[in-house]
């Protein structure tokens, strides 16, 4: 039962509905119900959050190291270098996201223009 299993028009929407919509909203609904009953520093919640954060970190690393689409044509050292320097500047500039994002974007654009000549 994968994405291409059925030729019906509704199949991709059902696939998105189950593997996307329900898979995300069940946590939101559970979050509402759990609400303030779960203490913010309970060990279980910290473990759950650590696993979740590491999952997102893996997504971030894969988007930079093994990207899809046009970004794959940018040199690997430029992608990693721009991300690392952008992140360092973000930390130094008082954890303001726009500073880090701006730095990383400028670096990768300039780097790409220079490397393609």
């Amino acid at each position: 039962m994968n994405w291409n299993s059925l030729d019906a028009w509704w199949w991709p929407f059902l696939y998105i509905g189950i593997a996307g919509w329900i898979a995300t909203d069940m946590w939101r609904w559970l979050g509402v119900l759990v609400g303030n009953r779960l203490r913010d520093d309970s060990a279980f919640l910290i473990w759950v959050r650590s696993v979740a954060t590491a999952l997102v970190a893996a997504v971030i690393a894969k988007l930079i190291i093994y990207p899809n689409g046009e970004l794959a044509n940018f040199p690997l050292w430029l992608r990693i270098g721009s991300a690392v320097i952008g992140f360092a500047v973000f930390l130094v500039a008082g954890k303001r996201p726009w500073v880090g994002i701006g730095t990383a974007i400028i670096l990768i654009v300039v780097g790409r223009v220079l490397t393609t000549g």
């Binding site: 696939y15 329900i22 999952l55």
Partner: peptide
């Protein structure tokens, strides 16, 4: 071409972080 249950599991596990955020 992940099977539907596998895709569901992957997305579910990646979205656990929504729970503490909502809470």
């Amino acid at each position: 071409s992940a099977a539907l249950p596998a895709a569901f599991l992957t997305v579910t596990l990646s979205s656990i972080r929504l729970m503490p955020m909502v809470a």
